[in-house]
Computed example of a mutant assay.
Amino acid sequence: FSWRRNGTAAGVALANFDDRNAFAPTEHIWVSEKIAWVRLDDDLPQYPKGPT
């Protein structure tokens, strides 16, 4: 769980939910830190760091 200090966003790991398919991703963040063999080829926006 994470929370922005200004209260504009919260982050919750999808593994915390009973139904992991209940939510669909809309973007990839921290792509600069991903493992080399991970492939992100789903055409979603990708950002090298976290949200601004």
Rank of each mutant, 00 (worst) to 15 (best):
A15K: 14
D19S: 09
D18L: 12
S32P: 10
T52P: 15
G11T: 03
P51S: 14
P25R: 06
S2M: 15
N6D: 11
V12D: 15
N21L: 02
G7P: 05
L40T: 01
T26S: 07
Q46W: 09
A24G: 06
P45W: 11
F1L: 08
V12E: 14
F1T: 09
F17V: 06
N16C: 04
N21F: 09
L44H: 05
H28M: 03
K34N: 00
A15C: 14
P48M: 14
L44I: 06
W30P: 03
V12Y: 10
P48H: 15
A36E: 06
D18E: 14
A9H: 04
H28G: 01
I35R: 03
A24K: 05
P51A: 13
S32R: 01
N16F: 07
I35N: 05
R4K: 14
L44S: 11
Q46V: 04
A10H: 00
W37T: 00
P48D: 15
R4T: 13
E33M: 00
D41M: 07
W30I: 08
P45E: 12
Y47V: 07
R5F: 13
L44C: 06
A24T: 11
K49S: 05
K34H: 00
L44K: 08
I35D: 04
P25M: 01
L44N: 04
A15S: 14
A24Q: 04
L44E: 02
A10L: 08
Q46Y: 12
A13P: 09
D43T: 07
A13D: 11
R4M: 13
D42E: 05
K34P: 00
A10I: 11
P51H: 13
W37Y: 10
A36G: 01
D43R: 06
N16E: 10
V12F: 15
